[in-house]
Design a protein around this nucleic acid. Structure first.
Length: 214
DNA sequence: TGCCAGGCCGGGT
DNA sequence: ACCCGGCATGGC
């Protein structure tokens, strides 16, 4: 869990995603779905303590054991099942080691990740970017809130449109996407909460206009 | 005490 | 192609 706290504490240059193994990062992407970081972090820590925070660990775990481990993350039955499906995929396609997916076609891999039940666009893009260092921009609730509030994109914008919006304007670079997403989250948390509707003076506006629009 | 958190799926319109 | 209910826990 302190991996998330530490990550938030030092938003900045690079690598704000938890500095774990690629599989830990992928598991974290699943566990944080519509959950707080602290809850997801607790689940990760429990998996680690049980020595099950790995492809082989999940594969070896009894289903109900895995459920109990990830319980703090919420939606624990679904998330345990998704983790098992992800691991099954990794054994079928990557010899049980997610690192073997590095170097494969990103678009093809993204499509195959989306075929896994329980893995949607944000989770797939998080795995590609943070676990595999592939240049896939991650859109999340903060990204949407910011873009809509600042009038950059319409209220009913779809995930794919937002992703394309950023990928069209930013260089296809892992560290750029990583850093950019971190900054969006940071400014969202610091300046764009629901209780702070005045966006004209928000530093984010200059940030966005300079970095994205221009 | 109630509301929310970095989603996703399935069934109904 | 949307819209919506369900899924679940811990923190404020």
């Amino acid at each position: 869990m302190q991996m998330f706290g530490a990550m938030l504490a030092r938003l900045g240059p690079s690598g704000w995603w938890p500095a774990g193994s690629p599989f830990e990062v992928a598991a974290g992407a699943v566990l944080t779905q519509n959950a707080s970081w602290t809850n997801a972090g607790q689940a990760l820590q429990r998996m680690r303590s049980a020595d099950m925070l790995s492809e082989s660990g999940v594969a070896a775990a009894a289903p109900d054991t895995l459920e109990e481990l990830v319980r703090p993350a919420g939606f624990y039955r679904q998330k345990a099942a998704t983790l098992r499906r992800l691991v099954q995929f990794l054994y079928e396609e990557a010899d049980g080691d997610i690192r073997n997916l590095a170097g494969t076609s990103m678009d093809s891999l993204r499509a195959r990740l989306l075929d896994i039940k329980g893995i949607g666009p944000e989770t797939a893009d998080s795995i590609l970017l943070y676990a595999l260092d592939m240049p896939s921009f991650v859109v999340d609730a903060y990204t949407r809130r910011i873009c809509v509030r600042h009038g950059l994109l319409p209220e009913d914008v779809q995930y794919a449109e937002m992703r394309e919006f950023f990928m069209d304007v930013l260089p296809a670079d892992v560290s750029v996407y990583n850093e950019y997403h971190a900054l969006l989250v940071r400014v969202a948390k610091e300046w764009c909460r629901k209780t702070h509707p005045r966006c004209d003076s928000c530093p984010l506006r200059q940030f966005l206009e300079y970095e994205v629009v221009c």
